[in-house]
Design a protein around this nucleic acid. Structure first.
Lengths: 189, 189
DNA sequence: GTCTATAGTGCGATAGAC
DNA sequence: GTCTATCGCACTATAGAC
């Protein structure tokens, strides 16, 4: 089942603003990134950036939304798999790929307290989370299942930025994350 | 073995600044917290805060260092356990307690990109990480052990702030985190 | 240890020309 | 879609009185 919630598709110029913002958020944090920095990164003036988005908050929201859209696409692809097992595996691999490809970006942006606040009551965010939960632990709503799920998602995105794994190449990291995530999820009491 | 690296002990007034800063960092992010906000939180003026620390960066560093000191104390306590198994269990429980007690604080502060940069070449940080590594996976330096360790630490601190577990009470969360962490670490290929 | 007052800078945001 | 120019404001930081 596809998500019924659609984000507005950014124009090419907006997409450039978003990409610049995400890059800077990952390096300096959301609160540590100014409009001037985004403009400089793009090689234009602040006024040009304001032509794409009316406030700084809109840029932050659009950048966070774009990150969430990528995750939603991974979830939607996984849901098209024919069996629950294959859907589960596809989701894990999708999240691992996404995280390793973008290393700091995903965890820093989705982990930022300001963005977490934005998403607190966000319908798309809740739907994506709900879909992931159903794919990974089914209808099990026990405390154990929820903690296990939260740990799994935090482990994948958090581990990719950890100093312990900094000198691992992407392929090795992907392989290990995927394998360990699958085994962690398969744990039975 | 105790850490040989000691942080300067903050005065009472400095400790209040640090506590206020940590609270605000958790809510607004490091870059999103101004000196004015810290002063307001304490009910004093900016000049009074500047009397304790000469620059904003020093406050950020002191707050991060204080967080690291707590973690270092947990590691030191675990190292005094008589057997490797008990040391490992004590470390896991210590990290879980720390994370649940302080929920957003630990992961937001240690996960902030600016603070991660501060700690990149920090000796105390490296030593604490090294000690944790030795306690949890011994001398195993394989890619698998390193990824497993990074995942474990990210899973504990990240899961505590995850929306999936928001409505769990502290005791339940502690119990589940501790149990699942121990099982994850015990996984054998 | 806290205050008032202030300097200097960079911020978010807007107006209007091209 | 980009620019220059500007407004008003909040910021970091300092000086000096109490």
């Amino acid at each position: 089942m596809r998500s019924v919630i659609e984000s507005p598709v950014p124009s090419a110029a907006q997409a450039r603003v978003i990409a610049a913002a995400q890059k800077l958020f990952a390096r300096h944090g959301v609160g540590g990134t100014s409009l001037q920095m985004i403009a400089d990164e793009l090689g234009v003036t602040k006024a040009a950036v304001y032509h794409q988005y009316r406030t700084r908050d809109e840029i932050v929201l659009a950048a966070a939304r774009a990150e969430l859209d990528i995750l939603a696409a991974v979830v939607a692809t996984a849901e098209e798999e024919p069996s629950p097992q294959r859907a589960r595996d596809a989701l894990i691999d999708g999240i691992v790929d996404l995280t390793v490809d973008r290393r700091r970006t995903v965890s820093t942006i989705l982990g930022d307290p300001v963005i977490a606040g934005f998403f607190d009551d966000d319908e798309q965010f809740r739907e994506v989370m709900h879909q992931m939960r159903r794919l990974l632990v089914g209808e099990d709503a026990s405390a154990e299942a929820r903690v296990r799920l939260a740990m799994l998602l935090a482990a994948i995105s958090g581990a990719a930025t950890h100093p312990f794994v900094r000198d691992l190449d992407d392929d090795t990291l992907r392989e290990q994350l995927s394998e360990l995530a699958r085994r962690f999820l398969g744990l039975r009491g």
